[in-house]
Design a protein around this nucleic acid. Structure first.
Lengths: 348, 348
DNA sequence: TGTTAGCACTCAAGATAAACGAGTGCTAAC
DNA sequence: GTTAGCACTCGTTTATCTTGAGTGCTAACA
């Protein structure tokens, strides 16, 4: 953790004013603006000197000689860590939003993925940025329920529920059909032997045991057992929900079409998106991590900030929701929204 | 069906040349260009006269006085119906595409939704436009398999497979737990009574019968039975896959950010997207429908064309895949791609 | 009568230049 | 240490000019 002792309180105050102003005005901010708008009993010249200092120290930068200052990543970092206004905890979503949210909140949503998707959508609405949701898959979850269902002569369906309430299913094509009795026996056997196991935890012996207990010829059960294992393994590839992609285009920093395109493509790349969220596991005090600009490992977002919140219940990590926007984002609003969702979605 | 007798073959030839050229060059095309590039033994002046006629008849228009001509919706219509080159049936996807496609085509994909999603992605890659896929939900499908699975003390999972191989599942919260035996009996009863039914086809009597046969107190089974019905009903709300949204920004007609935003928002609106695909049910000879510009009912796409293909197997409508792009799209390429996917995905 | 060469005309797009103004750094006075 | 004042910078805006692709029209031609 770096210290900011090099800055006296006046410099801090000025830096905060500059960033606050830039976040709302979207324009480089000059000394005179600060002097006028924020009554700190200083002339523009004084502020000018301070701003020159701040630039030299790397907290601000100038797009060109005769322009105002804009914050650097370092500046934002200090802002987020120390300067930002206290969170607005009474964030008031619009009427329409409330209706929408209530719709989702009906207790129909027991399934984690659904909940994550709904939460992401809410966050994106509240913030007007793009939100990404991912149910936790870092901790390997174990099987809570498992069933094999006959569908038709050539197909069976494997359904697995994990202990974090995600559901996976997989259709398996079978060459040689099994009788209903054989199948239901197999289902019970699999369920008994595999419940509690994790994907990385299933040994060859277990498989052999299942095949043996099933009382069916090896070549007839094996495809199905394979399907079951596939289905369990599949659970490691989390689904990712990206909501509010259109919001990107609201912000002037993405008026450049090629920039917007790069990001849109990133949004459609699940693997990269997962990386983006996973870089943020060592969550801070509140489980919220802010990555500013080049602090992100993915180069496409080096002029974006990513704010992620990790949600857990009873010590179990449920998932992560992230917000992605320009470095000039309203950090306060974003963090408030993520906190709002935490309060709203998770029982105390 | 309107007739185009008003056009002699020379006008047709010129119209075709103009549209062909415009589709590739993206620029309004002038008489001189046509005279030079397409050797039709006519001077630019003659072509100029013909183009003036074509404009008067509404097949072409001019962005401004001293510019070349661009096709109108009416022009595109005639082009698609009569003038367009025969399909390129030997469409050769790139090496990378082939690998990708083979990956999808592994016989893992038995589930319809997955297949539709994969097909949409392929189409979007082949065409560089945005593709939309939707498994058919217009014909109500009937239940092919159904099972109720205990998950934990307070939750059961309902899984339904329809006769078009879509899978739906729904988690149901129960207040008063049922024993495993009760649950499996209920599962069998539901399965026996509901298999073959459609969502709009389930009567109150059937529900009462299920409750009666279950041998469990009404208030304990009813939530679960409700969950089952919900799950079946849910099948009517088809999932829609939109692939290649980023491709939008490749085309100069969407350089205008606000236009792009409008479309991106549309893409995230499942209800509207479904409407877009459903307007195209009275499929033509090959099951492919082209809607040009204002022919679409949705105003946001009045400067786009939508090409949809309906796929069926053994007379059963499986689903629809659509491509959306500027009216100046490469209709030939798009239709070829949709046909390609038909050949590739559907066994003969 | 249909085709073509020629020419004046139009108009978007690009280039050039001037005026503007927001903002700076520096200096000197307070 | 603070501030008023001033010269300077440089992106933005506005106006003006030039260019060139393309047209419509007319008159001559086959």
């Amino acid at each position: 953790m770096m210290s900011y002792d090099e800055l006296d309180s006046r410099k801090m105050m000025i830096l905060k004013a500059v960033i606050d102003d830039y976040i709302t005005s979207k324009e480089p901010v000059g000394s005179r603006t600060i002097a006028k708008k924020y009554d700190m009993g200083l002339s523009s010249a004084t502020i000018r000197n301070e701003m020159a200092d701040l630039e030299e120290m790397g907290y601000l930068s100038q797009p060109h000689t005769s322009a105002g200052r804009i914050p650097s990543d370092k500046g934002y970092r200090l802002y987020v860590d120390k300067l930002m206004n206290p969170l607005v905890t009474d964030l008031k979503p619009s009427e329409e939003d409330i209706i929408e949210i209530c719709g989702y909140m009906q207790d129909k949503i027991h399934e984690l993925n659904q909940m994550v998707k709904a939460a992401s959508e809410i966050v994106s609405r509240l913030t007007h940025y793009t939100a990404i949701g991912m149910a936790n898959n870092e901790i390997k979850h174990s099987v809570k329920a498992l069933q094999i269902i006959p569908v038709d002569l050539r197909k069976v369906l494997v359904v697995v529920v994990l202990d974090n309430d995600t559901i996976k299913n997989q259709m398996v094509k079978v060459e040689q059909t099994l009788s209903t009795e054989e199948l239901s026996r197999l289902s019970v056997i699999c369920s008994e032997l595999l419940t509690g196991s994790r994907a990385d935890n299933i040994s060859l012996e277990m498989i052999n045991e299942i095949v043996g207990l099933s009382g069916v010829e090896r070549e007839r059960v094996l495809p199905i057992v394979d399907g079951v294992l596939d289905c369990i393994k599949q659970c490691d590839s989390a689904e990712i929900y990206t909501e509010g992609t259109a919001n990107l285009l609201e912000h002037p920093e993405f008026n450049d079409v090629s920039k917007a395109k790069t990001l849109l493509e990133l949004f459609n790349n699940e693997a990269e998106m997962a990386k983006l969220l996973q870089g943020c596991d060592n969550a801070g005090a509140k489980g919220i991590v802010v990555k500013i600009g080049t602090e992100n490992e993915i180069t496409q977002v080096s002029d974006c900030s990513v704010v992620t919140a990790t949600y857990s219940l009873n010590g179990v990590n449920l998932g992560t929701i992230g917000v992605i926007g320009p470095t000039r984002m309203d950090y306060n609003k974003v963090i408030s929204a993520l906190e709002y969702v935490r309060r709203r979605m998770l029982p105390e």
